[in-house]
Nucleic acid binder design. Sequence first.
RNA 1: GCGCCUGUAGCUUAAUGGAUAGAGCAUCUGACUACGGAUCAGAAGGUUGGGGGUUCAAGUCCCUCCAGGCGCGCCA
Length: 546
Amino acid sequence: MPSLPQTLSARIQAVIGVDPELRPATKPQFGHYQCNAALRLAADQGRKPREIALEIIEALDLDDLCEPLEIAGPGFINIRLRTDVLAQTVTGQLADPLAGIEQVERPATVILDYSAPNVAKPMHVGNLRSTIIGDCLVRVLRARGDRVIAQNHIGDWGTQFGMLVEQILVEGIDATTLTLDTSVELYKRAQEHFRTDESFAAAARARVVALQSGDELTRKIWQTLIDVSKAGFNRAYARLGVLLTDADLAGESMYNPMLDQVTADLIDTGIATVDAGALCVFLPGDDTPLIVRKSDGGYGYAATDLAAIRYRIDTLHADRIIYVVGSPQAHHFSQVFAAARLAGWLPDSVDVEHVGFGSVLGADGKMFKTRDGKAVTLDSLLDAAEEVAVPEVAIAAVKYADLSNSLHKDYVFDVARMTATTGDTGPYLQYAHARVSQILRRAGADGDLVNDESALITALAEPAEQALALALIRFPQVVAEVADDLQPHKLCGYLFELATHLSVFYEQCPVLHSDERQSRLVLCRATQKVLACGLDLLGIHAPQSM
RNA sequence: GCGCCUGUAGCUUAAUGGAUAGAGCAUCUGACUACGGAUCAGAAGGUUGGGGGUUCAAGUCCCUCCAGGCGCGCCA
C-alpha cells in the first residue's frame, strides 16, 4: 500500500510530468507539504515561477485529499491535507501490522557484511559500531521485504593461528578449557614467544602450513579456538540484543579454498600482474596497487574479499552487497570493488556499497585507548553505561548515541550525555513509549479497551493532534529513505521528533478525561505502534514502563 | 608529498540546491489540587573555519587557503 505522501507525489507527477519535489513543510504556516517543482520548471523554461505554480494548481485536482492549494514565496506550492484524510491514514496505519512501512516492489537479495570480530581478540569499539549499525540495517531492509543475508566475516584465518596453535601445544593446554578472554592472553604470550624465540617462530610457521594442509590435530585445535571465541561473541551479541547467530557466520576461512582460483583467473585475464614479487591489480587513477598475493606466496585480505564477492554473487545471488566497516577501509574497498568490476565478477546490476563509519573517541577527543595504550573493549564500554542505568536503558543509550549522528563522523563516548533522560537520547524515546503505553494501560484498566480494529480517529481539531498525526504518516517514507541511503540517523531524528510531538499532544490534549477520548486513544495507539516499530528497527527495546 | 573525511550557537548536532539555518544540552523566565514534571511553554544564543566563484536561490556545487583526523605495495 503506497503511503499518503507517495500517493500525493504520484498524483502530482502524473499531471506535471516531473518529480514534484514534495517535502514536508519547513514551518506549520506553510501547510503540511511543499512542492518545489515550479521553481525548477521556471528555471528550465525561463519563465516566472509563480506563473508556473498557478498553472500547476489549476491543472491539479486534489480535492479528495487536500485543502485548496496555495502559492507562496518565490513559487512554492503549499499543500495542506484534509483532516479527514489525515485521520483515515493514521487509522489505516494502526491497522497495518507493519505500521505503514511499504514493501519493496521487487524484493532484493541483500548481503550485509558486519560485526566481523577476530578470533582470539577481544571485541572492541570498532566491532561495536559495525555490529550496531549492521543490525539496524538488517532490520530496516527486512522490514521493507528484502531478503537479507547477514554475513559475519569473522577473522578466523591467517598466520596468527600458527602461533596460537603452537603456543597451545608448547604449554600443553587443553584448548577446550579456554575462553575468549584467556585466548586473548594466550595470543599475547604467543606473540611475545614468536618475537623472542626463533625456534618457536619456525615451529609456528610450520604450523601454518600444517593448518593449511589440513593436519588433523592442528585443525582440531584451530576449530576449538574458533568455538571458544564464538561463545564470547555470542555473549556480546546477547548483551547487545542484536540478531546475529551462528547461522550468520561466514568467516575468512570459508573463502580459503577459493583463493587459488581467484588468483588464477586474475592472472589469466591479465588483470593482475606480478610486481616486486607480489601479485597486484593496478587500477586506473590509483597510485597504489591492490595486492592479492604477497611476495611470500601468502594471500592478502584483498584475495579473500574478492573471493567473497564472487561467492556472494554466484552462489548467494546477491543484488546488493553492503559492507559495514570503518572508514579507514574506504580505499581498500574502492579498490576491491573496482578490481571485481574489472574482472567481470561484479556486474553493473549489482550494487556494492561500503558503509564506512567514524571512530569512537575517548573523552580527550582522541582514538579511544586505555591508559596503557590498548584498544578499549566492548564490554568495558557497556559496563560504563550500565553503571549509571539499568541494562535495558544503558544498551538503548549506547545504541542510540551510536546511530543518531551521521555515520562518517567520529564521536566521543560520553556516558553521561548518552544516558541522559532528557534530550535527544535513547532513554528519552523509551520514556515516551512507556508514557503513551501507560495511558493505554489505564484506559484498559477502566474497561475501555481499544483493541477494536474498527476504532477510528474522529477528531483532529487540535493543532497538537494534527502535528502528531502528520508526524505519524511520515514514518513509511523515513524507513524507505534509510533503506535506500543506509543512514540510520534519519530514523533517529524522525523518532525524536515524533516523541516530541507526542509530548506536546500529551500536554495539551487530555485523553482519558476528554470528550474525544476514543479518538485520542486510537491516536495514542498509533503513536505507540510507530514508536515501538521504529525503536525495533534501531534494535532498541521499547518498554511498557520504566 | 598524494588521496579521502571533517569544520554549523558555549557544548553535542540536523538540514534531497529552496522560504527567517532546525534541534538537544547547559543558562535564564514561567507552568505541578495534573492521563507519569524523566514533561511542557518561552527567552537568549549563528558573519555555517577564511576568501573567491556558479545559480533566481549555496551550510550544501566549483576553486583556493587554514585547522584537525584517517589512509597511502605485501597485517587484516
